[in-house]
């Protein structure tokens, strides 16, 4: 998932008798499966939480283009390069829909961008890990997009209409990316000894960061309970992580890649794989800014924004002159 550790606004789920008349009606609509649209009444905490969640998702799409862009100019064939460029373009497009969805809640894209650049808002921890060999691009598509889809598929049913519609479109593209990523790492896993080494190296480095994408266990979190009652979160983090592991293990086996977890084994009784948790202290460090690439990613985004200022100002100045000329002509 590209939104992690979203702090749900408010103090947790209210009992019906604690709710105002408006809140009760709002909750009834959600319980009935109705979509909430931008002009509808909504609790301030619902609005604030969605802005955080959609904003963080949008930022993740944008920052996520950097580790992939790192290999665009070194892609090994014209076809792989075209696939990667198309993927990065899709991701920038996802960022765009998501910023638009957030704008319907009363915040501008520029405000959200400022909050990203100042470090006030976060993006997914996964994009603070480096892409070091070509097979990493396969691993990002397969494991990172694969983990993202686990959360995004249920979010197609989320209560906020613009978010739900954005997710429906995004999921179609993400599942395509996941298959393309799997195909890219498959070519490495089935290739020369050096390519196999790339694929295994990518697996070794991306497995635990991919598991971290779901966030720490939130089964007992009052905040998550509120987000689930509002249907802006559909499953617990642990449910999604388990689903991801169960789906991914056979795919790794097919490739002949070893998942770097000695405790990974099928549990007949549970009907699921048992697996080791990632190192959560590493996760919290990455969130705090101590990941391998945090500083470089933010520097790259800030530089792009600062270098582009004259372009944005030039475009706006031209648009204003044109508008003024049109008014003068009328």
């Amino acid at each position: 998932m590209y939104a992690q550790m979203i702090k749900t606004a408010g103090t947790g789920v209210k009992d019906r008798d604690e709710m105002s008349e408006e809140e009760r009606k709002f909750q009834d609509r959600i319980d009935a499966g109705e979509k909430i649209e931008p002009k509808d009444w909504m609790p301030d905490d619902y609005r604030a939480t969605l802005i955080r969640q959609i904003g963080q998702h949008a930022h993740s799409e944008i920052v996520g283009t950097l580790p992939e862009g790192n290999w665009v100019t070194r892609a090994p064939t014209l076809e792989r390069k075209a696939i990667l460029l198309a993927k990065v373009q899709d991701e920038a497009g996802h960022g765009l829909y998501l910023y638009c969805a957030a704008e319907t809640l009363g915040i501008s894209r520029d405000e959200l961008t400022e909050d990203l650049l100042s470090g006030k808002m976060k993006y997914s921890s996964i994009f603070n890990y480096p892409t070091l060999n070509w097979a990493d691009i396969g691993a990002v598509g397969w494991l990172v997009d694969g983990a993202a889809i686990m959360n995004q598929v249920p979010l197609q049913r989320t209560s906020f209409g613009p978010y739900s519609r954005a997710m429906i479109r995004i999921c179609k593209e993400e599942s395509f990316h996941q298959r393309q990523g799997y195909d890219a790492i498959r070519a490495c896993a089935e290739g020369t000894p050096a390519q196999k080494k790339m694929a295994q190296d990518a697996m070794n480095r991306f497995w635990y960061p991919a598991l971290m994408m779901f966030g720490p266990s939130d089964t007992d979190s009052v905040h998550s309970a509120q987000s689930m009652a509002w249907k802006i979160k559909i499953n617990t983090n642990d449910e999604l992580r388990q689903k991801f592991v169960d789906q991914t293990v056979p795919q790794a086996e097919y490739l002949g890649l070893t998942i770097p977890d000695p405790n990974l084994k099928w549990n007949e009784e549970r009907g699921h794989y048992d697996f080791s948790q990632p190192d959560w202290s590493e996760f919290f460090n990455v969130i705090k800014g101590n990941g391998p690439c945090n500083v470089d990613r933010m520097a790259a985004r800030n530089k792009a924004w600062d270098d582009g200022e004259w372009v944005r100002e030039g475009m706006l100045a031209h648009a204003r002159k044109k508008a003024a000329a049109k008014v003068a002509a009328e």
Partner: peptide, 29 residues
């Protein structure tokens, strides 16, 4: 053009530059 990936002045330009690069790679093929 593909060297611009992720660092364009504004999101719409990121998309447009990637799209142009993609067209060119297709034509190259």
């Amino acid at each position: 053009i593909s060297e611009w990936c992720g660092i364009a002045p504004v999101l719409e330009e990121d998309i447009a530059l990637a799209n142009t690069a993609l067209d060119f790679i297709g034509q190259t093929q």
